[in-house]
C-alpha cells in the first residue's frame, strides 16, 4: 500500500485535463487480425476471410487495443506505482480492415483523487481516438485507470 501523501489541486487538474499523448501509427495486417481473433477465442469468419456483410476482412471490436496507444504523460509527479484498469467505453464508427493505417492519440479527459479500501487513489479518464489513413475516426475508447 502506498503511504505517500499526495494532494491533487484544482490547478493540477486544470494542467492535466486536455494533455494529449504523442500519436502512434500502426499498419493493420491481416495476420495480426487473425492472431488477435484466435487469442480472444472468436472464430467469426469476418476476422479471417471476410463475409458478404462486412465486404472483406474486418478487425474484432477491441483489436485497436493492439495499436499500442501511449498514455498521455501527466504534467506532475505522482507517488503511485500500481495501476488498475477501471473500465472501458468503446464507440465504433467505421470498420478497421487490413491495410488501414491507424493513428491513435490519447487525451486526459478527467482526473480525480479518492480514498478507498486500497488507500489513496488517483483516477484518470483517458480517451483514445483512433483515425484511419483517410482521417476518419474509426473508434474511440474511453478508459478509466486507477493508480494507487
Amino acid at each position: 500500500m502506498s503511504t505517500a501523501s499526495f494532494t491533487l489541486t484544482d490547478e493540477m487538474r486544470e494542467q492535466a485535463i486536455g494533455v494529449e499523448s504523442a500519436p502512434t501509427t500502426t499498419d493493420v495486417e491481416k495476420g495480426h487480425i487473425a492472431r488477435f481473433a484466435e487469442a480472444i477465442g472468436d472464430d467469426n469468419p469476418a476476422y479471417t476471410e471476410g463475409t458478404p456483410e462486412t465486404g472483406g476482412i474486418v478487425a474484432p471490436p477491441t483489436f485497436l487495443r493492439a495499436m499500442r496507444a501511449v498514455r498521455p504523460e501527466l504534467p506532475f509527479e505522482i507517488p503511485f506505482t500500481r495501476l488498475l484498469d477501471g473500465g472501458s467505453d468503446w464507440e465504433y464508427f467505421e470498420h478497421v480492415r487490413p491495410g488501414d493505417v491507424i493513428t491513435a492519440v490519447g487525451r486526459v479527459e478527467d482526473i480525480r483523487e479518492r480514498t478507498g479500501s486500497i488507500g489513496q487513489m488517483l483516477i484518470t479518464t483517458i480517451k483514445v481516438t483512433y483515425r484511419n489513413q483517410t482521417g476518419a475516426i474509426v473508434a474511440t475508447q474511453t478508459s478509466t485507470s486507477i493508480r494507487h
Binding site: P61, S88, D89, W90, Y92
Partner: peptide, 25 residues
C-alpha cells in the same frame, strides 16, 4: 472486454453492427 464484444456480436449475427461496448472491471 474482448470476450464481451465477442459474446454480443456472436449473438447479434453477421449483418448486425456494434456501435458501443462498455464494461467495468
Amino acid at each position: 472486454n474482448a470476450m464481451l464484444g465477442s459474446y454480443v456480436t456472436g449473438w447479434a449475427g453477421p449483418a448486425s453492427t456494434l456501435r458501443r461496448l462498455t464494461c467495468q472491471y
